[in-house]
Each structure stands twice: as C-alpha cells, then as structure tokens.
Amino acid sequence: MPIKDFAVKAARPLPVIILADTSGSMGVDGKIEALNQALRDMVKSFGAESRLRGEIHLGVITFGGKAAAHLPLTPAHQIQEIQEFVAGGGTPMGAAMEIARELVEDRELIPSRAYRPVLVLVSDGHPTDDWEGPFQALLASERAAKATRIALAIGNDADEAMLTEFANDLEAPLFHADNAAEIVRFFRAVTMSVAARSQSGGDTQPLKLDYRRVADDEDDPLADFFN
C-alpha cells in the first residue's frame, strides 16, 4: 500500500530566528562576547539534540551599523561554525525587522508544514533608523503574527516599550539581562525551551519559559530574568 510513497523524507522544520543587536554599545562590558558565546552554545546544543520531533533551523540577523542576514536559515546540525559578531555602528533595528519579515513570509524557506517559528529579539538600545513602519509591518504580517516572539532587554538603555510590544508569548514576557552572564543564561533557557517544544511533536501550547518558578531555583535558567 504505497501511500507512504507520497510522503516527503525531510523532517518538519522548526525555525528559530535570532535578531541580534551588534551596535557599538554592545562592545562594552563584555556584552558582544557574551552574545557570541551564547550563540555558539545554542548551535552546539541544537546540533547535538537527538530527541527532536522535527529539525531545528537556525537563522541570525544582526543590526550594528547595517542590518544583515548573518546566518541564513540552516538546519542546526549542519552548522559547522558561526561567524563571531563584531560590535559597531548604530542600531538599524527597523531594517532588521524588514529582513525578518521577509524571511518569515518566504513560503519556500519556511513551508506551511513547518512548526511555528520562534523569533528572538535581543537589544541594548533604541533603534536609530526609521523603525516604526517595519516594526508594525512585522507585527501585522500574516505569518510573523503567528510566530512566537521573545525579547531580551540588555541593560538599562534598551527600548523596553518597543521590546515589550514585540514579545507576544504569554509564557514569555520581556526578559532583562543586566550583565554578560545573564545573556548567556537567557539563550540557554531559550535553547532548552525550543528543544522541549521540538520533542513534544506539534504541541500547540506556548513556548515554555518557566520563569515563574522561585528565583533561587538553580534549575531555572530564567529565574533571574523575572521582573
């Protein structure tokens, strides 16, 4: 009974797209180094994850001086290494939003059989370009509106109002990092949560970032981010 002859062999993708602030202000206090470490850890963890019910695809968009696709959407297990971020320039977040919107709306890169994408926005400052239009276009776009959107505000100068509006997961409001170590821990929490979702196989629940647990619980990597 060859019904299975009509099935594709490729696994269902679970896209994870990081929008990373690499502006000049990220070059102080070890922030960019922490971001580099966090991404390396994330790639390593995703690539080593063997209990998946899909295939995690990772993409990275940077905005520092100019916005660019730093890493095209790639199956995590195929990523050999990720080019290190270098901090510099302004914060063209609007341009990064535009790249992210085009990526999420691309039906070839992200087919409809894919799991709901996860967008992670990380920033320590205010956008320096004309960001309102691209930002609203991203939030209003058909597919990005359905994606899970998570935001991390680094330090005290981040545009928290905008980042709060970006985040749409009830289980994951805006998170904060006050130092480099917390950036790494945030990414570890996102990694664990995405891996957990991919193991559940088509779970329709929100991405679980278990920040409600007590703050001194060392097992909870996001406890320190809970306001």
Binding site: R12, S112, R113, A114, Y115, R116, K146, G202, D203, T204
Partner: peptide
C-alpha cells in the same frame, strides 16, 4: 494556507 504553520 501558506500563511499558517504546522502546529496551529
């Protein structure tokens, strides 16, 4: 439709 995903 093309605007949705597999777990919605």
């Amino acid at each position: 439709d093309g605007g949705s995903f597999g777990n919605l």
